[in-house]
């Protein structure tokens, strides 16, 4: 199962089983669609949408199918309909490159516009899209503090002073092996103090949680991967994961 097929066969809300976790004292819900919901502040967090990936590649000569934005937005719409948040935080790399927003086809532009209507919307600056997305409303910030949490794109190194950080950028994925068969899925990664979001965009790949890039970011004994299943979240302790 990948993000694209998830977008094509969306599961009804009442079939969904989420994981309720606690990030540095704040309650949060991990949804198998790849979004985080904070009930206290009615905030929906998504990360690494990588909209207009196809177009970004096309600009460089690789003519990938031009349908990824439509699929990612379809998934986002499902999440919005499910939680009806008052506030949305897009945690950076919302667009695959800095030309993405400006060259957005009219239809997608209108769709994003209607999603944003009537709610607060924050574009956190990412490494792919450091500037305010051209032609779109919402606030563009480097980091955002509220609800006892700190939202930024790239996680800070180490574990000191990072309690309450919610970040993206790394596209965590986890792998489990049973009876000789391996399954690899995107995941939320959290040790209870900080959380790293799975990538939401349909074109995104994943980086294994055991990769060196995650070195030192978590208290490993407390680290749990919440893997995205089709209908539910599978929570697996870090020491049961395979590189």
């Amino acid at each position: 199962m990948n993000r694209a097929s998830a977008a094509q066969a969306v599961i009804a809300d009442d079939m969904i089983s989420t994981a309720e976790i606690d990030i540095n004292g704040t309650a949060a819900i991990c949804d198998p669609i790849g979004a985080l919901y904070l009930p206290d502040s009615r905030t929906l967090v998504v990360s690494d949408l990588h909209l207009e990936t196809g177009a970004a590649y096309a600009r460089r000569g690789m003519l990938l199918p031009p349908y990824d934005t439509g699929l990612t937005l379809k998934l986002l719409q499902v999440a919005l309909d499910r939680y009806r948040p008052a506030c949305v935080v897009s945690l950076g790399d919302s667009f695959h490159d800095r030309h993405g927003a400006g060259a957005l086809p009219g239809e997608s532009l209108a769709q994003i516009g209607s999603m944003m209507r009537g709610r607060d919307w924050y574009w956190i600056a990412g490494n792919h899209d450091p500037d305010h997305p051209a032609g779109l409303a919402g606030d563009c910030v480097n980091a955002l503090l509220f609800d006892g949490l700190c939202f930024r794109h790239e996680p800070l190194g180490g574990t000191a002073d990072t309690a309450g950080e919610v970040a993206g950028h790394l596209h965590p994925a986890a792998r489990v092996v049973r009876r000789g068969k391996g399954v690899r899925r995107p995941c939320f990664a959290s040790d209870g103090l900080r959380l790293i979001m799975p990538a939401f965009g349909v074109t995104t790949g994943g980086l294994n949680l055991r990769n060196a890039a995650f070195q030192g970011l978590f208290h490993k004994s407390q680290l749990t991967a919440h893997l995205l299943g089709r209908e539910r979240i599978y929570s697996v302790p870090f020491d049961r994961l395979i590189a």
Partner: peptide, 25 residues
Amino acid sequence: YPGQEKTGRQITVSADLIYDVLRSH
């Protein structure tokens, strides 16, 4: 890509995904 050697896993856009997208669209 020029100046950028990648292993299969790092190709960020997977062929599987493109296949699924093409097949449906």
